[in-house]
């Protein structure tokens, strides 16, 4: 199933763990806040990224269709 990563930008503390996990899929902006580079990811790949966030700022949402 394809999903997208949702970033709670006010919970993100910029630890960088998500980028270290999958730098092709997620990056940090100039405020050190995570943002998704790819809009559609396999659920397993997205789950691995979300799992390493120490503050739970990342979550997944299914993509319709």
């Amino acid at each position: 199933m394809a999903v997208t990563i949702i970033v709670d930008e006010f919970a993100c503390i910029g630890s960088g763990e998500c980028v270290a996990e999958d730098p092709q899929a997620i990056a940090l902006d100039d405020s050190g806040i995570a943002y998704a580079l790819i809009g559609e990811l396999a659920q397993e790949r997205a789950a691995a990224i979300c799992k390493v966030c120490p503050v739970g700022a990342l979550s997944m949402a299914p993509i319709d269709g």
Partner: peptide, 14 residues
């Protein structure tokens, strides 16, 4: 949390 207090929280007030 602390890290945003000198960054995003400071500029946004959140």
């Amino acid at each position: 949390d602390r890290p945003p207090l000198s960054k995003r929280a400071l500029t946004s007030g959140r």
